[in-house]
Design a protein around this nucleic acid. Structure first.
Length: 477
DNA sequence: CTACCTTTGAAGGGT
DNA sequence: ACCCTTCAAAGGTAG
């Protein structure tokens, strides 16, 4: 799909990839499920050492068996994160898998030792550092919160094959998933997107009674209430935020999420294309998994669930965009959240943090003469959703860089929008480069190839100009 | 207690 | 096709 960079190119991040989702749940999905729910383990002999060559047993529906959740990084098989950026390293000593002296196989952890993917007990979480905070946030929360009482899935339509259910019943901790004989639907897969509604009633009988056609409005309402809230899958940026928030908070003294998010937004733009691609890919898998787990779910289901009143703000923003900006600004300017003096505010000043220095491959994107600090921004698919003030701040570097360099090379081919390009240089660079513009194979089968395909800023701009240019931009000043 | 703030991206609905 | 709106996370803040 257009919004999914690399869609259809399989996973694995490297050569080979994994067969798609042709039939039921693909190996990739299975691996992803294991990634999301490490309790779902794979056969000891089929360790996820190489996702590109899944064993036949793995491919079949006769899934999984056991493997210690800590045995391997759950993401390793899917996404080839370089240690430069996600430095998972080896798990802490106290978390190293215990080898069963008898079998030599990593011992399945006791429920109390299980990783905090799901809060088995309030105190047993947040102990295991995880390179991907969105999977295991430092706070010990799962990506999606799970009701303390456990998971109750009301949707019989939930897509899960036999292997899953058998696995569930046999391997899942009884704390999480009671065996089917105990009443829970065998498909009670605890996906984190499910959040039980805040209904202070007995959590029993959440099952949908098939025969109940003559429901009174009250009953219908009750069922509505009992319907767990299935959250939207996280998008790439949200995943990134989840992972990086703790680090940013640690680096800065800030704690306000609004401020943190601004920083994260900037850092997001500072990420190299490859790094962003990882999150896009993760997000794509999130959506894919989500759609498989909840085929009938629609984003529309959650509409109106939150009482948000942004109309005023948006309207203000629009007028702000279309007309003069500063005058009508009555809300707190972003700068208020992001003092420029903040050490952590500068993407290039974060103690050489890997967060701010994109992957080295991307360095090939810019000309050698290009300053590293600006190159990263210049090469990034900055969003067009102009939040004037902040955007002006964010794009100042690229603007200056452009004005002296890139604009000259781009003005010729973008003559149709020359006026706007003059008035809003950042718009050119701020325009997102949909990953879909890149052949998925080029991006996924060999990630660096994309960088290699754009050896110069001019080439990068050429790529930019192959995309439709939206003019919903606002001059930086 | 609840909405807001702030970010980007996805998705749905309206035009 | 395009635009607008809402929601996803998160935690301090304000009402």
């Amino acid at each position: 799909s257009p919004a999914e960079p690399g869609a259809g190119a399989g996973v694995g991040g490297g050569a080979g990839g994994v067969p798609g989702l042709a039939e039921g749940i693909s190996p990739a999905l299975l691996q992803y499920l294991q990634m999301k729910w490490p309790l779902l383990d794979v056969p000891a002999g089929a360790t996820l050492k190489d996702s590109r060559s899944p064993s036949p047993a793995h491919l079949s529906n006769k899934v999984p068996v056991v493997q210690h959740a800590h045995h391997m990084h759950p993401l390793t098989p899917l996404i080839t994160y370089s240690n430069d950026h996600f430095s998972p390293g080896s798990p802490p000593g106290h978390l190293s898998p215990e080898i069963d002296p008898k079998t030599g196989i990593p011992r399945p952890p006791h429920p109390s030792e299980l990783p905090p993917y799901y809060p088995l007990s309030p105190g047993a979480v947040g102990q295991i550092p995880h390179p991907l905070g969105w999977l295991v946030p430092q706070q010990g929360q799962p990506v999606y919160s799970i009701p303390p009482g456990g998971f109750r899935h009301p949707y019989p339509a939930l897509a899960m094959n036999a292997s899953m259910s058998s696995l569930m019943s046999s391997r899942f901790s009884p704390h999480m998933v009671p065996p089917p004989t105990h009443g829970l639907h065998p498909s009670g897969i605890p996906h984190p997107t499910i959040v039980s509604p805040i209904v202070k009633q007995e959590p029993t009988q959440p099952n949908i009674s098939p025969g109940g056609n003559s429901k009174s409005p009250v009953t219908v309402k009750k069922e509505e209430e009992k319907k767990p809230h299935i959250k939207k899958p996280l998008n790439a940026f949200m995943l990134y935020m989840k992972e990086m928030r703790a680090k940013v908070v640690a680096e800065c003294t800030l704690k306000e999420s609004a401020a943190i998010n601004q920083i994260l937004g900037r850092r997001w733009h500072s990420l190299s294309r490859e790094e962003q691609a990882k999150y896009y890919e993760l997000a794509r898998k999130e959506r894919q998994l989500h759609s498989q787990l909840y085929p009938t779910w629609s984003a529309r289901d959650n509409y109106g669930k939150k009482k948000k009143r942004k109309r005023e703000k948006l309207a203000q923003q629009q007028s702000h965009d279309t007309e003069s900006s500063l005058a009508s600004k009555s809300k707190k300017p972003c700068v208020q959240y992001l003092p420029a003096e903040k050490p952590c505010d500068s993407p290039a000043s974060s103690h050489g943090s890997m967060l701010d220095s994109p992957a080295t491959p991307s360095a090939a994107l810019a000309s050698p003469a290009a300053p590293a600090a600006t190159h990263s921004e210049q090469a990034q698919p900055l969003s067009l959703t102009t939040k004037p003030e902040a955007r002006a701040q964010l794009t100042v570097h690229s603007a200056t860089f452009l004005s002296g360099k890139a604009t000259s090379s781009s003005s010729s081919s973008s003559s149709s929008s020359s006026s706007s390009s003059l008035s809003s240089p950042p718009s050119l660079l701020s325009r997102p480069i949909p990953f879909t513009s890149v052949p998925s194979t080029a991006l996924l089968s060999s990630p660096p190839s994309f960088a290699a395909a754009i050896p110069s800023p001019q080439a990068a701009l050429a790529v930019l100009q192959t995309q439709p240019l939206s003019l919903v931009t606002k001059p930086a000043d």
